[in-house]
């Protein structure tokens, strides 16, 4: 029962991303060619709404359902990891057309070959874990 709300949020997330076409390889390609406003509109309105919601959350000192004050953990300071790591992800995102949310959603749409992308992504994460201490951050 404790987990039902997470299942429902996940289902809602999956539906929104399919209906917005953000799970489509073609939309990602089109976005990186600047030939459609669609993806920029999605990300832009998501961030604008997000800024508003988080601002209100902080102003109203809203609490989580568990009663704790809402707190969004800040990311560590840094430059190299965000720029280089981000660019590596960007290369993979444009090639596979799938970021780490859509890859699961696509499996639900019956695209089972995406499981190969998921397996490779798990491997990529594992290799990062192996090399973590040797990489500049």
């Amino acid at each position: 029962m404790k987990y039902l709300k997470f299942l429902l949020v996940g289902i809602f997330f999956g539906i929104v991303l399919v209906k917005s076409e953000a799970v489509s390889w073609y939309r990602i390609y089109e976005m990186f060619r600047f030939e459609s406003f669609h993806m920029y509109g999605i990300i832009g309105t998501a961030v604008a709404t997000g800024i508003l919601l988080i601002l209100l959350t902080k102003k109203m000192k809203l609490k989580t359902i568990e009663g704790a004050l809402i707190h969004i953990p800040a990311k560590d300071k840094g430059l190299v990891r965000y720029l280089v790591g981000g660019a590596i992800f960007g290369l993979g995102w444009a090639l596979s057309g799938a970021c780490p949310g859509p890859m699961y959603i696509l499996v639900g749409t019956g695209a089972f070959t995406v499981l190969i992308v998921i397996a490779a992504a798990i491997l990529g994460t594992f290799v990062y874990g192996l090399l973590k201490d040797k990489l500049p951050h």
Partner: peptide, 12 residues
């Protein structure tokens, strides 16, 4: 593609 996504997201 998948490998780069997995490696890059964790790095970033």
């Amino acid at each position: 593609g998948g490998f780069l996504v997995g490696f890059g997201t964790r790095y970033a």
